[in-house]
Design a protein around this nucleic acid. Structure first.
Length: 280
DNA sequence: TTCATTTGACCGTT
DNA sequence: AACGGTCAAATGAA
């Protein structure tokens, strides 16, 4: 990812922190009063999220390289093109998982949400299965994270807690998802958007700001839990834009040498906002 | 205009 | 040949 200007990077960090805090607040409110999903407080938290989201997206657009958007041609065309345009480059065969290859882990869950950010790349009707199988890869594949997952809605309707069978392939190498990975390994659900509150999520914010972030972030809508993927895939997608990465990262601000950090300046009130605003 | 999703095609494995 | 995992053009949303 292209380097952002240092002031923009600081704003991005701060907005990301704000975003995560608002997400956490929303989850707390939801947990406190799950029956009133659309009440005023939660709506307010959602509004904060939307605002942060817009700023983050704006900042990212400013520094984005578009590196992950390159489209590949069909294999045959690709091979032919490679032969013409760059004969020295070897044609790398497409990697396919052997059919029925063993998953790293398999989880039965009432929700497709697991705390990771996934991008859907395929859907397939499977013989003998009523519901289509959905294929996802890690949204940070551009950074070399090759983790994928396969989501199959369970045939049996009697157990909503195991409505989906999710098979994971490959380990996340994108970092910052240790808790989610551990939760998946243990076969348990991610707690609803568990993050450290406030400034203690600085490390997560730093991670997100440092690596190429999602162009759009949105808090996971818990209302989609248990929803079935529609046969046409319209109106339902456990997609990149509807899930949020919420890291559980312990970070001791006091223990870190952050006294010189602009973020620290922000937190203790000495941050130069005027400079940032002028430079935007 | 950009970007994520959809969906038919492609291709490796069985 | 069938199956199923992946690709990538088309499409739609923002």
């Amino acid at each position: 990812m292209a380097m952002l200007g240092s002031s923009s990077a600081v704003v991005l960090e701060l907005m990301t922190m704000g975003y995560q805090s608002a997400a956490y607040l929303g989850e707390l409110l939801r947990a406190a009063s799950p029956a009133q999903a659309g009440d005023e407080q939660q709506e307010l938290a959602a509004e904060i999220l939307r605002c942060c989201d817009r700023v983050i997206a704006k900042l990212n657009r400013g520094g984005a390289t578009g590196a992950t958007t390159g489209k590949k041609r069909k294999a045959a065309e690709s091979a032919a093109a490679a032969a013409v345009t760059s004969p020295s480059l070897p044609v790398t065969p497409t990697k396919r998982r052997a059919r029925g290859a063993e998953a790293v882990r398999e989880v039965r869950s009432g929700t497709t949400t697991d705390g990771f950010i996934w991008r859907k790349y395929g859907q397939k009707e499977i013989n003998g299965c009523k519901h289509p199988r959905l294929y996802y890869r890690c949204a940070f594949r551009g950074q070399g994270c090759l983790a994928t997952r396969r989501v199959q809605q369970s045939q049996s309707q009697d157990d909503p807690a195991a409505a989906f069978v999710i098979a994971y392939y490959g380990e996340h190498t994108c970092g910052g998802d240790a808790a989610a990975a551990a939760a998946c390994r243990d076969g348990e659900l991610m707690p609803p958007a568990v993050i450290n509150s406030g400034a203690s999520s600085f490390a997560a914010a730093w991670n997100m700001a440092s690596r190429e972030p999602a162009s759009s972030l949105a808090v996971e809508r818990r209302s989609c839990d248990g929803d079935a993927p529609s046969e046409t895939s319209q109106g339902w997608s456990p997609s990149f834009s509807s899930e949020v990465e919420l890291d559980v990262v312990g970070f001791d601000l006091a223990g870190a040498d952050s006294s010189a950090s602009p973020v620290w300046e922000f937190l203790n009130g000495s941050f130069d906002w005027e400079f940032v605003i002028n430079s935007l």
